[in-house]
């Protein structure tokens, strides 16, 4: 009897920890354990099957000598840079336009944001059809009488990566708009009223007061877009399949190709670790500062 009551007391005190334990164990194993595993394998000579003898950084040497990885990284810079800048600019513009007491705001917002609900595979498929040179946009414009018009980016190795930007911006800019709109609405109205009373023109109120006060939202939007860009895999697969050739490879598709089509686990692991390192470098300081301000 005494034993049972001690047992139930113990249970009562520790039940919160017991409830959290399975999830925490899963995260430890399947996130951190797996990162460690991938990191380990990236230091071995693993090919088709993983080996566990550490030989140093040869996989990373190979990786950075590979022209295909070089292309993938370059594409990440071009795609990531344009995707982030254009999405933010467009998102901010839309948010400011929508903030002018627009009567149909709800409908417009719904329209701007719906792409975010769709799979990137669907987005890629749709844009692949629209941008295809045979029957897509090029075809229409030629039909309007501009016979020599060319718009073959999708199949042009030099420009194919920009089609990924177009589709990516289409998918994500509405989301950025929603973030910025929430930010605009959270600015203290009394400050805006004070500025209006001071006779400051609307454009100036935005540029000098409202937008600077949204710095944290710019940071959030930036982090989210950066994160999307680095993880981008589905969009490229659906839109260009990484082609023509490997002109539109990104680190994510490179990793996948090496892991599952080329059976080169060592290379796949090292490329995944590089992606991981980039995300780590961006997200950790951000999360750290967010959590710290929260706890204070």
């Amino acid at each position: 009897m005494k034993g049972a009551s001690i047992m139930s007391e113990w249970l009562e005190r520790h039940i919160p920890k017991l409830v959290l334990a399975p999830s925490f164990a899963a995260i430890l194993l399947f996130v951190y354990g797996f990162i460690a595993w991938t990191g380990w394998v990236s230091l071995t000579r693993s090919r088709l099957l993983p080996k566990y003898d550490i030989v140093g950084f040869i996989q990373y040497d190979r990786l950075f000598q590979s022209p295909r990885w070089d292309t993938a990284l370059n594409n990440l810079y071009v795609f990531g840079g344009l995707f982030i800048v254009i999405s933010m600019a467009l998102g901010l513009l839309l948010a400011i336009l929508l903030d002018q007491k627009i009567r149909t705001e709800g409908v417009l917002r719904t329209i701007y944001l719906y792409p975010m609900a769709m799979s990137l595979i669907v987005t890629g498929t749709a844009w692949k059809w629209i941008l295809n040179p045979g029957l897509g946009v090029e075809h229409i414009i030629r039909g309007w009488g501009f016979e020599s018009f060319r718009f073959d980016w999708l199949v042009n190795p030099k420009f194919a990566i920009y089609t990924v930007v177009i589709a990516g911006v289409w998918q994500a800019s509405g989301f950025v708009m929603a973030l910025f709109l929430a930010g605009l609405r959270s600015v203290d109205e009394e400050i805006i009223k004070a500025a209006q009373v001071d006779g400051i023109p609307t454009a100036r109120i935005y540029s000098a007061i409202i937008i600077p006060s949204m710095a944290p939202i710019f940071l959030s939007a930036f982090i989210v877009l950066m994160h999307l860009a680095i993880k981008s895999f589905d969009l490229v697969i659906a839109l260009t399949g990484g082609g023509p050739g490997y002109a539109t490879d990104l680190p994510a598709t490179y990793m996948y190709a090496l892991a599952f089509s080329r059976g080169d686990i060592g290379q796949a692991a090292s490329s995944a670790m590089v992606m991981m390192a980039v995300v780590f470098a961006i997200v950790v300081p951000y999360l750290y500062s967010e959590l710290r301000t929260r706890n204070e």
Binding site: P16, K17, L20, S23, F24, I27, L28, F30, V31, Y32, G33, F34, I35, W37, T38, V41, P50, H227, I230, K231, F233, P251, A252, M255, Y256, A259, I265, A268, A269, S271, A272, M273, M275, M276, V279, V283, V284, L287, L291, N295
Partner: peptide, 26 residues
């Protein structure tokens, strides 16, 4: 409880990793 915030941070970060880094072992 002590360590709960640490656990939360670890879980939170876990949802930000690029999943490429776990698909091989998974």
């Amino acid at each position: 409880f002590r360590g709960a915030n640490m656990i939360f941070s670890l879980m939170l970060f876990g949802s930000f990793i690029p999943f490429q880094v776990v698909i091989l072992p998974m």
